Simulated scan of single mutants.
Amino acid sequence: MSAGTERFVGHIAGLGTTSGVRIVIGMWASSPFGAFTDVMVQSAEGTRTLLAPSSSIADYVSGAYSFDVVRVEPLSVSMGEDSLSLDAGPLSVEAELGATTGVGRLLGLIPTAVATHPRWLTAINPVAKVLMPGVRTVGATRDQRRQYYGVTGARLITSARVSWAGDDLGELSSVRPRVRFGFSSVPKKPQVVDVTTIAVVVPSEVSGT
Rank of each mutant, 00 (worst) to 15 (best):
I25E: 12
A35Q: 13
A35H: 07
F36W: 06
T37H: 05
M40F: 14
S43L: 08
A44R: 15
G46R: 08
T47H: 04
R48A: 04
R48N: 05
L51A: 07
A52W: 03
A52R: 08
A52C: 03
P53A: 02
S56G: 01
A64Q: 06
Y65C: 02
F67Y: 15
D68K: 02
V69L: 12
R71M: 13
V72I: 10
E73S: 12
E73N: 01
P74K: 10
P74R: 15
P74Q: 11
P74W: 09
M79S: 14
G80A: 08
G80N: 11
D82R: 15
L84A: 02
L84T: 02
S85G: 11
A88T: 07
A88H: 01
V93K: 08
V93P: 05
A95Q: 07
G98D: 06
G102Q: 13
G102C: 10
G104Q: 05
R105V: 07
L107Y: 12
G108Y: 04
L109Q: 14
I110Q: 07
V114Y: 04
T116A: 01
H117M: 04
H117G: 09
P118W: 07
P118S: 09
R119T: 09
W120V: 11
A123F: 05
I124G: 01
P126A: 03
L131F: 14
L131T: 04
M132S: 13
M132V: 09
G134D: 11
G134F: 12
V135L: 15
R136H: 15
T137K: 06
G139N: 01
A140T: 13
D143S: 00
R146W: 06
Y148Q: 03
Y148H: 06
Y149I: 03
G150D: 05
G150F: 05
V151Q: 06
V151A: 11
T152F: 03
